[in-house]
């Protein structure tokens, strides 16, 4: 049993090292890719605009649940007016970046991984290599940058819609005072809270995009290989996002 655990650990470290090397390869090609901005904007559209509906709907429902649960808890202490603060802090610092990253991995990450995996399986990446075109620069980097740019924007939209969801439930349905809801939020949520959310979503954007393009690019060129790469993208992204979330939260609380 310990032998299996050890082998699994070594394999994971090996994969992590390989992923870091792949990231360095991506970063080395990034300046050249930035000159062809159209390729990046296409990917911002694919990963961002096409994920908007799922992000907005999820944000609304998460905000509404937060409004209900928050109201239920806060009214026990007679402080329902703090609902705006509780919802905003929860969304901006935690739920916005984390849930967006998980949804991103499920929607855009799987799309990226399966697209690259299929390109590998159908020899499109080999064909590029044979045409003396580096597939990392032409295909991988624009997709990676598209994801990195998109994630903080999606997280911001998620948090904004979520706050309106909490307001809808708290103010409209539960009759919390609207003025208190907004004014307490304004006085309690600081730039530091927003920064934490931005840092988290940026880090998650790099992590989720890297995992998706890495798994897709290195997928075995078979139907099973593409399926396995897609599954690994979601599972690895979810675990890494939650782990990084803890690290960043601890860092901000300590500072």
């Amino acid at each position: 049993m310990f032998g299996d655990l050890w082998t699994s650990l070594i394999e994971s470290l090996d994969r992590l090292g390989d992923m870091v090397r792949f990231l360095l390869r991506i970063l080395a090609q990034t300046p050249r890719a930035l000159l062809r901005f159209q390729l990046i904007t296409d990917q911002v559209y694919n990963t961002g605009a096409l994920s908007l509906v799922i992000i907005m709907l999820s944000g609304l429902f998460v905000g509404m649940v937060l409004g209900l649960q928050g109201f239920e808890l806060l009214q026990r202490f007679g402080s329902e007016e703090a609902l705006g603060t509780a919802a905003a802090i929860g969304l901006v610092k935690e739920l916005g970046p984390v849930v967006t990253a998980l949804l991103f991995a499920g929607r855009a990450g799987t799309a990226l991984a399966s697209e690259l995996g299929l390109m590998r399986a159908t020899d499109q990446l080999s064909a590029m290599e044979m045409m003396a075109v580096d597939p990392v620069g032409r295909v991988v980097v624009p997709r990676f940058l598209g994801g990195v740019i998109t994630m903080p924007l999606l997280a911001a939209i998620f948090s904004m819609i979520g706050i309106y969801g909490a307001q809808l439930v708290g103010v409209q349905f539960m009759h919390v005072d609207g003025g208190s809801f907004w004014s307490q939020m304004q006085s309690s949520v600081g730039l530091r809270d927003i920064n934490e959310g931005i840092v988290k979503s940026a880090v998650f954007g790099v992590a989720c995009s890297l995992i998706a393009v890495y798994e897709g690019y290195h997928a075995a060129p078979t139907a099973e290989g593409v399926g396995a790469a897609t599954t690994r993208t979601v599972v690895t992204s979810a675990v890494i996002v939650l782990f990084l979330d803890y690290l960043i939260t601890a860092f901000f609380l300590r500072g």
Binding site: D123, Q124, S126, A127, M128, M130, M131, A132
Partner: peptide
């Protein structure tokens, strides 16, 4: 190698067109 490949063309089994 990429410089050399510019003097080579390859037709893959399935065409490998960019979809």
């Amino acid at each position: 190698l990429f410089a050399l490949r510019r003097s080579m063309g390859m037709l893959f089994q399935n065409g490998a067109l960019l979809t």
